[in-house]
Design a protein around this nucleic acid. Structure first.
Lengths: 162, 162
DNA sequence: TCCAAGTGATTGACGTGTCATCTATGTCCC
DNA sequence: GGGACATAGATGACACGTCAATCACTTGGA
């Protein structure tokens, strides 16, 4: 079965897709910029800090952190190296498994997070949350969860293409 | 006026924000991967190609292209350099303004775009569009446009903070 | 016991994006 | 004409993310 005419996007679909992409582009850039200016942190820096800050003992197994954040291990490893360099986190070995590692927030990391959080939340509000109605927020949440659920489980390629 | 307690996100807001971020993370990764595997193109490559492909003479002023794509000039300049290297586009001078430049799609660029488009659209459909209802698409479009409109006009920082 | 396979995590190379800076040209106005 | 200033675009340094390869350790047989 070849030569199937591709299913181009309808105007409605095109509009949604384009709006979504443009929103991400600008929103992400603006929020990153704010964070950088207010707190000298990148977006990924903040993600790591806040995730560790919320952890039981301010520390997590590296893989667990990666899974939780939906990051690749490689990405996390690279990023932790940079953050460790700056004194925001430390890596510790783990007794029960010689291969494993645990990342912990340093005091400086904790202070940095505390100092950054209010301005960051304000930025997210200002550029995003406060512009939307509760109904819009709910639709977005649902829609996002639908897409994530599909992607997180089966990252397979085109079904029926094999 | 100091010490204002930060306006943390409510559960509902948190849910939307998190769903949005996770969706972007996975969706973008998956679509990029598909594009890379199917057509040896990165996401930005495709964006540039398709924008030029839709242009009147398959060519545009560099700044106009940047504005249209909401890219910084620097980003576009870097990316065009890489794409020119690969023979997908060419840069030409412009007679009316000695500073200006025009980018044009090469034949190879055009062929690459034509070859990539069907699979890319299919990928977008599979991982995103087809998972959503028309109502969800409309809400997303509206919401995205609201956010973009605000950001595209006044990229100012916190009002009342000065 | 010893080795093959699996798993946790890191590394290197490379493409990408940002900011700050720079070059070249155009514009305004004295 | 000749600055001052703006604009178009390119560039260098650096942070980030991906993939593939690698290292170190663990596990599960034979």
């Amino acid at each position: 079965m070849t030569g199937q005419e591709p299913q181009w996007l309808t105007d409605r679909e095109q509009r949604a897709w384009q709006a979504y992409r443009r929103m991400f582009l600008l929103l992400n850039a603006q929020i990153s910029r704010d964070l950088q200016h207010d707190s000298k942190l990148s977006d990924p820096d903040y993600d790591v800090l806040s995730n560790l800050g919320a952890a039981p003992d301010r520390r997590r197994r590296v893989s667990e952190l990666a899974d939780r954040m939906l990051w690749s291990r490689s990405r996390l490893s690279h990023h932790l190296a940079r953050m460790e360099q700056r004194g925001l986190v430390v890596r510790e070995g783990v007794a029960t498994d010689g291969r494993g590692a645990v990342v912990a927030l340093t005091d400086q990391g904790m202070r940095t997070l505390d100092a950054a959080a209010p301005a960051h939340v304000a930025s997210v509000r200002r550029h995003f949350i406060d512009l939307l109605s509760p109904a819009q927020l709910d639709v977005l949440a649902e829609l996002g969860e639908t897409v994530v659920e599909r992607l997180a489980s089966g990252p397979t390629s085109a079904p029926g293409t094999d």
